[in-house]
Design a protein around this nucleic acid. Structure first.
Lengths: 292, 292
DNA sequence: CATGATGTCTGACTTTAGTCAGATATCTAT
DNA sequence: ATAGATATCTGACTAAAGTCAGACATCATG
C-alpha cells in the first residue's frame, strides 16, 4: 500500500470515477457530451471550425454534424471566413451565449462545491495545481510577453513572495536593483512566461545593459511546476532569445539560499565569477558565453 | 488566474483529457471499455454479480450481456451462489487471469511512465494522495482492525514518524508508554483504521485499563487526508466503541506541539485535567464522560 | 404452499460516437 | 487557366452504451 505505482493507480481510480460525475454535469442540460464540448469550445473563444476540430480531436464529418445540431438549436451561427471561404468560423448567438453561461455557472458551482467540503483549501488547491501542471506538461507553452502584462506581474509577485520566504532577512524589492521594464523588451531584452493552460507557471527575464553583456533576471518556476524541468526550458529560451538579439555574453546573480538555482546554472554550463554589481541580495555570480 | 474556482476547473480540464488517454489504454486490448471494466472488477476480487453491477453502476441487462461476452471469450465463468441460487458469482478462468494480468501490467506501466517523467516524485505522490482522498472522501470506511495488522502497523509507523518530525526533541517509541496490542483488542478496547480504497489514511486506538477508564491513543490522520474532518469521525467511532463496551470514562494525553489535536478535543467536548500518567512526551491531559 | 420480492436474463429498442468514401467549393501555385 | 491541395459537408455505415418491459427461477414469509 506504500508503493508509488499503487498510489498513482489509486489516484487514477479516484479521478476516473469523479470525472464520470463531472461529465454528467454536462449531460445535465439535455445535450450530448459532444455537442456540449463544441459549444463550450466556441464559448471559450475558439471560433475557427478547423481549430475546434483539432482541439477536440473530432472527425470532420462528426464535427460538421455537431455544429449543425447546435445551429438547429439556434445556439451557433457559422459564416465563411473572409480571407479563405473554404474555412468557416462559428459564433455564439445571443441564445448560445446564455446557454454557455449556464454551463459556466454549472462548472463554477461544481468547483465551489468541491472546495467548500474541505477545511484545508490551500493545500488542496496547491495539490491540484501540481497535478494539473504535471498532466499537461507537454502543453506548457513559453511565450514572450511584456514585463508589465498581467501574466508577468503575477509571476514577479510570486517570485518576490518566495524570496521573502526563503531569505533569512526577507526580501524588499525596493532595496534590490529591480530591472526596468524597458530593459526587458525587444530589442534590448525580453521577458518570457511559461503558460500552462491559462495559468502562468514560470518566467525569466533577459535584461539588456550598456555594459557589453545582458543579464538573466527573475527566473522563477511555480512550486506546482517544479520537477518538470521548466527552469531548464526557460533558460534555454532566454539563451535563444539572446542569441537572436546578437548578445554574446550573459551574466546573472543569485543567492546561495536558492541551491536548486545554483545547481541549475552549473549544469547548464555557467561559470562562477566574482561579484559584478552592488545589489545587497545576491552572493553568487555567474556568466555564460553565447556562441552565435 | 488566481481565483480558486478557476484553479479547480483547470485541474478538471487537465484530468479529463488525461483520463481520456487512460481509457484508451483499456481499449488497447481489443475489448470495449464496458467489458474491460467488468473483467477488471472481477480481477480485483469482486465476484458477486450484483456487487459488480452496483459498483460499476450498470443496468442489469447490460451487465448480463457484458458478462456473457466475457464468458464467450473464455475469460470468466459464472456459477449460482450456494446460499442463494438467484445470485451468481463470477470467477476468472485461467485465460481470464492471464488477461487480467495483462491489464494490470499496462496500468502499472502507465503509472510508472507518469512518475518517471518527474524529478520531484515525492511531492507529486503526496499531491496525488491528497486529491484521491479528497475525491473519495464519501467512500472512506472506518473498520476495526487488529492493532498488529499490516494496516495498523503502517498507520502507527507513520504516526511515530510524524511525532519525530514535530517534537523538538524527536520521538522514541521505547521511551513512551507504548500501549500493549492486547489492550486494544475487544473486549478490553479496539483499534480503528480509516481506509480510502486500499490505503490506510487514519487510525485511533481505544486502550482498556484496569483503572476505571479507557484511553484514546494513537489518533492519526495522514497528511493527505487532512481537511476531511476525519479526526472527528475517528474520535466519534472510538467513543461509540467505548459506549458499546460499557466504558463510562475516557482519558487521553497529547502534546501542545500538536495544536490541531488539542483544538479537536476541546471542540468535541473533552475537558482538560491534570497529568494522570508519567509518560515523558505528553504535556496536555483530557477526559470525557461517555453517557451510556 | 401461496404470495410477493429479488436477481438475472432476453428481446427490442434508442442514442451517441465514430468511420469512411466521395461530393463540392475554394484556395495556391504554376 | 488548370492541377492539385485543402476545408467542409453528406450519405451510408458500425460499434458501443444504455433503456425498458417482461420472462423466469428462486427466495423469504406467513
Amino acid at each position: 500500500m506504500l508503493d508509488p505505482v499503487s498510489r498513482v493507480r489509486r489516484f487514477n481510480r479516484a479521478v476516473t470515477s469523479a470525472v464520470g460525475a463531472l461529465d454528467t454535469s454536462f449531460l445535465g442540460r439535455g445535450r450530448p457530451l459532444g455537442a456540449a464540448r463544441v459549444l463550450n469550445a466556441i464559448g471559450h473563444g475558439r471560433s475557427d471550425v478547423a481549430e475546434i476540430r483539432d482541439y477536440l480531436a473530432l472527425d470532420s464529418g462528426l464535427m460538421s454534424r455537431l455544429l449543425r445540431s447546435l445551429e438547429d438549436e439556434g445556439l451557433v451561427e457559422t459564416t465563411p471566413r473572409e480571407d479563405d471561404a473554404r474555412r468557416r468560423v462559428a459564433k455564439l448567438t445571443r441564445t448560445g451565449r446564455r446557454e454557455f453561461a449556464a454551463y459556466e455557472a454549472l462548472s463554477n458551482a461544481q468547483a465551489e462545491g468541491f472546495l467548500a467540503q474541505h477545511s484545508q483549501r490551500d493545500a488542496l488547491l496547491a495539490a491540484m495545481d501540481l497535478i494539473a501542471s504535471a498532466l499537461t506538461r507537454d502543453r506548457v507553452a513559453l511565450a514572450e510577453m511584456d514585463p508589465q502584462s498581467d501574466e508577468a506581474r503575477y509571476c514577479l509577485g510570486e517570485y518576490y513572495a518566495e524570496l521573502g520566504r526563503r531569505f533569512k532577512q526577507g526580501f524588499d524589492v525596493s532595496l534590490s536593483r529591480d530591472p526596468d521594464a524597458k530593459d526587458m523588451r525587444r530589442p534590448r531584452g525580453t521577458f518570457i512566461v511559461a503558460m500552462s493552460d491559462t495559468l502562468p507557471i514560470g518566467c525569466v527575464g533577459l535584461k539588456g545593459t550598456d555594459r557589453g553583456y545582458a543579464e538573466i533576471k527573475r527566473l522563477w518556476v511555480a512550486p506546482a511546476a517544479r520537477g518538470l524541468r521548466l527552469g531548464r526550458r526557460l533558460m534555454d529560451a532566454a539563451e535563444d532569445a539572446a542569441r537572436g538579439l546578437g548578445i554574446a555574453l550573459l551574466r546573472l546573480d543569485t543567492n546561495s539560499a536558492l541551491p536548486e538555482a545554483g545547481q541549475l546554472y552549473r549544469t547548464m554550463g555557467w561559470t562562477e565569477i566574482p561579484r559584478f554589481n552592488d545589489d545587497p541580495y545576491p552572493d553568487l555570480f555567474f556568466e555564460k558565453r553565447i556562441p552565435s
